[in-house]
Amino acid sequence: MLVVDGSQGEGGGQILRTSLTMAMVTGTEIRIENIRAGRVKPGLMRQHLACVKAAQAVSNAKVSGAEVGSTEIVFKPKAIKAGEYHFAVGTAGSTTLIFQTVLPALALAEAESRLSFEGGTHNFFAPSFDFIALVYAPLLRQMGVEIELKMTRHGFYPQGGGQWQAVIKPAGRLSGLDLLDAGVLIGKEAVVTSANIPGHVAVRELAEIAKQCKWPEEVLKSERVESMGSGNIVSMRLHHECCSEVVEYVGKVGVSAEKVARRAIQAIRRYQAAAVPVGEHLADQLMLPMAIGGGGVFRTLKPSLHSQTNRDVIHLFTDKRFEFEGLAKDLWEIRI
């Protein structure tokens, strides 16, 4: 049985999720130890448990240690089973992370799958539904998987309760990805999404973007959405010929609207300055489908500790190993 040390590198939930996905796709039995050893509350939190349970359902796996607080699990997957699944997670736990855990497996299954999700959709420390829809899914489509996504309700921290659906039509085999250049910029927008908060928040956030970035009025959008609790997120989006990038920052009580906007501006400026196609978070997310598919190469910002850890964990399951090559301070090439 393959043993994965959950305390290596960034020592967080990503090691768990990457291991689950790789185990399902390669049919490897694994034991993950020291889960989230580096965190204040170590072990499985509810959102991680939800990922384990989702992976278990999809691969009909035999699992032990799947409890809140558990620091070790054994996961023995069987054949991937396409079908209809409903995944729900409390505490506004991220549903997009569950989606990314099971997607590569279902993308290689024999038949179409229909997934419905319930929980958090716009969280800290996780891609938002918008990011999945605008950035991640289009590239996976390029690799051959057909993905349809539909949002019915937003779920913000801490109430969650968001709802969305996905249809995955498998590819048989994931093709390679070649993303050295983003191509010409064909559009941009700044979108503030809010639920149940005073209207001035969105106005101030957009004003800050207009002032700092000199983005024209027509690309600044404010959307009020239906949600159980209150929520606010600033999303700045750049659409290029070959790919899109979305940077986001979640607003919360006690942080001024201007500050929330400035955090998003900071991130988009770093991306623009580096002139690479793939942003920091997307880099992490692309590695898995590339490793199990036809490989490929992309240019991105300086790899984070998350990316390095992800590389090491993926390498446990496959002979192939990602190369990280630094061309300039914030210009790197990642290939496999």
């Binding site: 509350k41 072990g43 939190m45 509810r46 959102q47 448990l49 809140v68 607080g69 409390g90 505490t91 506004a92 736990g93 801490p158 109430q159 149940n196 159980m228 609790g229 209150s230």
Partner: peptide, 21 residues
């Protein structure tokens, strides 16, 4: 109303703990 979500409700909050299921 929606405002109830902004208030602390003990029984509901007990079900919202990330490390307690």
């Amino acid at each position: 109303g929606k405002k109830r979500w902004d208030k602390w409700r003990p029984t509901i909050s007990l079900c919202q703990q990330e490390d307690l299921l």
